[in-house]
């Protein structure tokens, strides 16, 4: 009972920008970020896989860095920017990483896919032209039990190319 009271007594106010929208809530400090996203915000694209920081299904970006949202408390994300798989597509248009998974069949059951895509996005932000080995290292915190990873690597390579092309066009426009 004392435990319960202590938990209830200590709710804290958090303000978190999730997919560019400001969210506020009063939460228990023990509420994990993945539960906040899924249960408080109904953003169920972020999956809970192993729940032991191994599988990476719950990977989201916090201030641009890939983190396992089952291993971070919601209160730690207060004041920060979180991006989930729901934040990838803009105006009905798929993000290049989503397009890549679609075009290259980067998924079978799809359970690991949201985390895999977020890890892929984080990787491509740091390295716009990764080698196959760099991709494999980059997603080594994410487990897939269906594909054998070959198609996932291809999907990320596809996204890398699309993103580089988009970058190229941006650079070329002002020169005209």
């Amino acid at each position: 009972m004392e435990e319960v009271l202590r938990g209830l007594a200590s709710k804290m106010h958090v303000e978190i920008t999730v997919n560019e929208q400001k969210k506020e809530a009063d939460v228990e400090p023990r509420l994990l970020l993945v539960h906040f996203l899924r249960e408080n915000l109904s953003l169920t694209g972020t999956h809970i896989g192993c729940d032991t920081s191994n599988c990476g299904a719950c990977t989201v970006l916090v201030n641009g860095k890939a983190v396992k949202s089952c291993t971070m408390f919601t209160v730690q994300a207060s004041g920060k920017e979180v991006m989930t798989v729901e934040g990838l597509a803009k105006g009905g248009k798929l993000h290049p990483i989503q397009e890549g998974f679609w075009e290259k069949h980067g998924l079978q059951c799809g359970y690991c896919t949201p985390g895999m895509m977020m890890a892929g996005v984080a990787l491509l932000q740091k390295n716009s032209n990764p080698t196959e080995e760099e991709i494999r290292r980059g997603i080594s915190g994410n487990l897939c039990r269906c594909t054998g990873y070959v198609k996932i690597v291809e999907a990320i390579q596809y996204a890398a190319e699309k993103l580089r092309e988009a970058q190229q066009q941006k650079v070329e426009v002002p020169a005209r």
Binding site: S53, G56, T71, N142
Partner: peptide
């Protein structure tokens, strides 16, 4: 661990 864990 792995790269995602190493970010934290």
């Amino acid at each position: 661990a792995d790269p995602t864990v190493r970010n934290m």
